[in-house]
Each structure stands twice: as C-alpha cells, then as structure tokens.
C-alpha cells in the first residue's frame, strides 16, 4: 500500500511520519510516536478513551485516519504538563490533571487521558461550567470505574484553579 507522508505538531514538537492511508490516528500516536497514554477502549467510536485535543477541540483519534491529521496541532496527555496552564495549581501538573488526582477522578486510569482532554476542551469554552454542562461534555467518554461523580468534581476543581478561584478541599 502506498504510504503517505504527514507532518503534524504533537505536544509542541513537529513530527513527520510515513503511514498507510488507512492507519488510524490513534495507532499512529500510540505505535509510531510511542505516546501510549492515548488508549483504545472500543471498536465503534463510543468510548472516547482515544480522545486527543486537536486544533482546538476534543476528537476521538480512532475515528480519523492519520493522514487527516496532516498539518494539525495535537495535544495528548503526555503534553499536558508542558501547557502554559500547568503549574497554576499546587503542583507542576496541568490543573485538570491535578483536579483528577485531588478529587479521586480516576481508578484504573484507562479512560483518564481521554477524559482529561475532553475536560480541557470544555474548559477552553466555558470557564465555569455547570454540572450538567460537564456531564454533557464528557458523555462521549465512558468510564467503568468512577461512576463519573468524582470526574465532574475533578473538572470543577480545574475550572476553579484556571479561573483563579479557590478549589474545594
């Protein structure tokens, strides 16, 4: 199969890849770039474990071919600590990462990277989302461990830190 050359920016670094056109973006990220924080949880586009932040929005990287990312800018979980907002809270982490840790928003950790990037995308749009808005915005991300409640709190925590409000205990 003829391979395609693609160039995209991942976590601030320009990367070049030669891939088969049918290669899914999630496999390019995981296998060609060795960024294995992005996960695969289904084969039908439902679970959102593969969610990355691409050109300003949360996308499921299992529903795109790698060549469709040519020229785009992507943040994966591995890049979150290098974003300008990292360190705004009490740790060196991105406030969303810190929120998940502080509010026990993860257990097995498998949905966590996708869930956090969905949360980050939401917080770019709304700096003080309601619980319902948070739940709607993560409804493309399945979690089997947490029952979502602490994930909602984690994103609320991050919203507080990002907006300079005092996060909850």
């Amino acid at each position: 199969m003829t391979e395609k050359e693609i160039t995209f920016t991942v976590n601030g670094t320009e990367r070049e890849l030669r891939v088969e056109p049918r290669k899914l973006l999630v496999h390019a990220i995981r296998e060609d770039l060795d960024l294995t924080g992005t996960h695969i949880g289904c084969d039908t586009g439902n679970c959102g474990a593969c969610t990355v932040y691409k050109d300003g929005e949360a996308v499921k990287s299992c529903l795109q071919f790698a060549p469709q990312a040519d020229g785009s800018e992507i943040t994966t979980v591995e890049g979150m600590e290098d974003l300008p907002e990292a360190g705004m809270g009490e740790s060196d982490l991105h406030p969303v990462q810190e929120g998940f840790h502080e509010m026990h928003g993860l257990q097995c950790g498998f949905c966590t990277p996708g869930m956090m990037l969905a949360g980050k995308a939401l917080l770019e749009e709304h700096d003080d989302p309601s619980e319902t808005e948070i739940r709607q915005n993560i409804s493309g991300n399945l979690c089997r461990c947490t029952g979502y409640q602490n994930i909602v709190k984690s994103i609320e925590y991050a919203a507080d830190v990002l907006a300079g409000r005092e996060p909850p205990e």
Binding site: R30, T36, F100, L106
Partner: peptide
C-alpha cells in the same frame, strides 16, 4: 490519602499490556 498511583496515570505514563513493545 490521595492515591500514589495517580501520577503515572494522569501523565499518560501507566504501562498497560498494549503499551508494551
């Protein structure tokens, strides 16, 4: 106590089977 295991999971540094090469 906040979880010791969180750090590697929130940074994408967990090691699950399909991460092994």
């Amino acid at each position: 106590v906040r979880r010791k295991e969180d750090r590697r999971f929130v940074t994408g540094e967990g090691t699950y089977v399909d991460d092994i090469k």
